[in-house]
């Protein structure tokens, strides 16, 4: 078991509690795939400065090759979290943490635009039209 913890993951999973949030994000029609939505959640977690960690009970959903075919994401995680020896484990953790924070207690769909653009969209529209 200790060996498993020290070696990086070859698969990435989503906890059952976060699956519904992932499904809701895709259902909104704004993401082409669950992987795109999970990456969005990951960025949200990074933005919130979630500290390093691991997520238990995430299971297996994708091979890391499906999520990060060219290793760019791994490199970025290593850049943002210097010295990280298990970037894919951290990626899985951040995806799950991000999804957890996208959950709405009112059962509303996640506010993707609100996260993406912290300022008002209408202001953007007016700026662009002027």
């Amino acid at each position: 078991m200790v060996i498993e913890k020290t070696a990086d993951k070859r698969t990435i999973g989503i906890t059952s509690g976060n699956e519904s949030v992932l499904a809701a994000l895709v259902e909104e029609g704004l993401f082409a795939s669950e992987i795109d939505a999970a990456k969005f959640a990951l960025a949200h977690a990074i933005d919130l400065e979630i500290s390093r960690g691991t997520t238990e009970g995430a299971g297996t959903k994708w091979n890391v090759g499906s999520v990060d075919s060219d290793g760019t994401m791994k490199a970025i995680i290593q850049a943002l979290y210097p010295g990280e020896a298990q970037p894919y484990r951290l990626i899985e953790h951040l995806m799950n943490e991000g999804l957890g924070r996208l959950k709405s207690e009112e059962g509303l769909p996640p506010d993707v635009a609100g996260i993406l653009f912290k300022d008002n969209l209408e202001g953007v529209a007016q700026d662009s039209s002027s």
């Binding site: 082409a32 795109d36 969005f40 990951l42 960025a43 850049a79 993406l116």
Partner: peptide
Amino acid sequence: KQEAITAAMSPAWAAIIVDKLKLTLARH
């Protein structure tokens, strides 16, 4: 428009942390 957004959303995750990425890039 939704199709256009869906296509644009694939790399959009980085837009959330664009400032952090730029800062890290400068340090690197």
